[in-house]
Design a protein around this nucleic acid. Structure first.
Lengths: 249, 249
DNA sequence: CGACGGCATTTGCTCTTACCATTAGATCTT
DNA sequence: AAGATCTAATGGTAAGAGCAAATGCCGTCG
């Protein structure tokens, strides 16, 4: 199987021709991340970028489109509009993660496992880093849930907010963003299940309160354990649907 | 400060004028995720999309650019090239997560915490879902590490691969993608530290072996605990640099 | 004097047209 | 046959024009 050795040694690596919009996107990205452009500042107008780079308007716009998806710029229309530098937010990351989940048709089981991996740790970190305001916020939301026992959808919505509030209290933006990204999908597949009765909802409020107590006391281990049990309980009740794919849309 | 109540009741919500490339991107995305287009298939050529949608070539291309960042299509040049449907891979998600981390200047502490949240759970799942091949792969990599005790950078590189192999064994693509996304950053900030001596490296190989044993035995709890200790140990040794920001680039 | 209405300007958004560059199949040549 | 060459399909890039939205300015009118 020795093939005719026309070119024994490659000598030259594969030549890759970079596309102009990629190059521009990379350079703009670097400029932004360098800190040369503060958040909220406008980068040059499209026409300026054209004259600065020698590229066409189209290429410039394609580069901006990429940065937009990455969450590094937001485009505003009209006079005093422009392409404004912004910090990547939870939403931009959530968007991409959502495409990942849907595109690969990840099972509900996978999402549930992910949640079980994230939430206990978030609770522990919340216990270590929480502020007074965080506790107030958590109690507020939990009280709201207590008043929405009869409204399944409203209850579910506040429930998401509560779990994300725990994530916020953790002071870990990355983990919080992960949870934020999947929380919608998880709940969308979980809500309006037969197990979801007012009685069980009341139970949830009680469990939340005990978790809040642990967080307030700064007891990371307890917060971890209680949250772990809490999310696992959710899974147990969803087991019937396990391994099923996500509903379309 | 009561402003003149010209329009007491809004009556109409804010009107948002969708941009054409957004609309097209949304529709293409939906088509792809519906499964109407299988992975590897080509969607219509740009010129076809132009005639189908009535939009301009530029708008079509901007829409494609967005989908490209999301990892849903890959663009190939030349005859029989085109825009090819593809499943979002770890890389596309890692890219966005990296922008998130850099753009928000997340601290090393945050990354470390995230790792500590992910890895033990990944080890547990690996113990529950691993195949024989996974074990073989883990042992292979660990053996390679044992032979690279003197080469700090090579050791670090294989180390990343080992941890990602555990993630692969977990059969949870989402958690694995999370770890993959941060592993480079974490190690980049960790490697070439004074604590990083051949002796300690040898210790790591031993710890890895014990984790492999737990995974092989299907002992999720043990795998979890051992991995937890393992990653925490790494943090302890990095503590001096804690709270410092990431090095530029 | 103050508020309202229209005008001008800046900026992104969209379309049109044209041509170049890359790739792979088809065809010709030896 | 094997190789070189031609050809067609497709994305990449450029240039130019005009439209649409947002904002500030200014003049008019009450």
């Amino acid at each position: 199987m020795t093939k005719p050795d026309d070119t024994p040694e490659p000598m030259l690596g594969r030549i890759s021709v970079p596309k102009s919009y990629e190059v521009l996107a990379d350079r703009l990205r670097q400029t932004i991340l360098d800190g040369s452009l503060a958040e909220g500042e406008r980068l040059p107008t499209e026409r300026e970028l054209v004259s600065q780079t020698g590229l066409s308007r189209g290429s410039v716009r394609e580069a901006l489109r990429k940065l937009e998806v990455e969450g590094l710029v937001k485009t505003k229309l009209g006079r005093l509009g422009g392409n404004i530098v912004s910090r990547p937010g939870n939403d931009s990351m959530a968007h991409v993660i959502t495409q990942f989940v849907r595109g690969r048709r990840l099972s509900l089981r996978t999402l549930q496992e992910t949640r079980e991996a994230l939430e206990p740790s978030l609770a522990r970190l919340a216990a270590e880093h929480r502020s007074k305001d965080d506790i107030v916020r958590l109690r507020e939301l939990n009280a709201e849930m207590g008043q929405a026992l009869d409204d399944r959808n409203r209850f579910a919505a506040i429930n998401i907010a509560w779990h994300n509030a725990v994530a916020t209290a953790s002071r870990n933006d990355l983990l919080a963003a992960f949870l934020y990204a999947i929380s919608y999908d998880v709940v969308a597949s979980t809500v309006s299940e037969e197990y979801d009765t007012p009685g069980l909802r009341k139970e949830v409020v009680g469990v939340h309160e005990r978790i809040i107590v642990a967080i307030e006391a700064g007891d990371g281990d307890a917060a971890f354990r209680r949250m772990e049990r809490h999310v696992k309980a959710t899974r147990a009740k969803t087991r019937a649907r396990e391994d099923s794919d996500l509903p379309p849309d």
